[in-house]
């Protein structure tokens, strides 16, 4: 089975995620786009593991899942805190620090 379509899909997901981070305003959505990037990397890892016939990539995918879960904990804590303070999760509103 050719692995190429999976790589194309992975690259597409990564690009969608990266663009989402750049153009979306809501911190939660931005964060979801980052998660999409991590999942795109996971897909690439697993595809390459298949391609090379070793298990390194699959193991990497597990580690990434754990890291992403930890990232959710930290990230949501921070985003919820600033949402409660400012009553807004828009990344454009938090703009006290500049220049």
């Amino acid at each position: 089975m050719s692995t190429e379509p999976f790589l194309v899909l992975s690259a597409l997901l990564f690009t969608i995620g990266a663009f989402g981070v750049l153009i979306r305003r809501n911190a939660i959505v931005v964060f979801m786009c980052v998660e999409l990037m991590l999942n795109a990397a996971n897909l690439a890892f697993v595809t390459f593991a298949r391609h090379h016939g070793n298990l390194d990539g699959q193991i990497a995918a597990f580690f990434v899942m754990v890291v992403a879960a930890a990232e959710v904990v930290v990230g949501l804590a921070i985003i919820v805190t600033i949402f409660r303070t400012r009553r807004s999760a828009s990344v454009d509103d938090a703009s006290l620090l500049k220049y």
Partner: peptide, 11 residues
């Protein structure tokens, strides 16, 4: 300021 720094650094 501090919370804004955390959000920016995190994202």
């Amino acid at each position: 300021l501090s919370q804004e720094a955390a959000v920016k650094y995190f994202l």
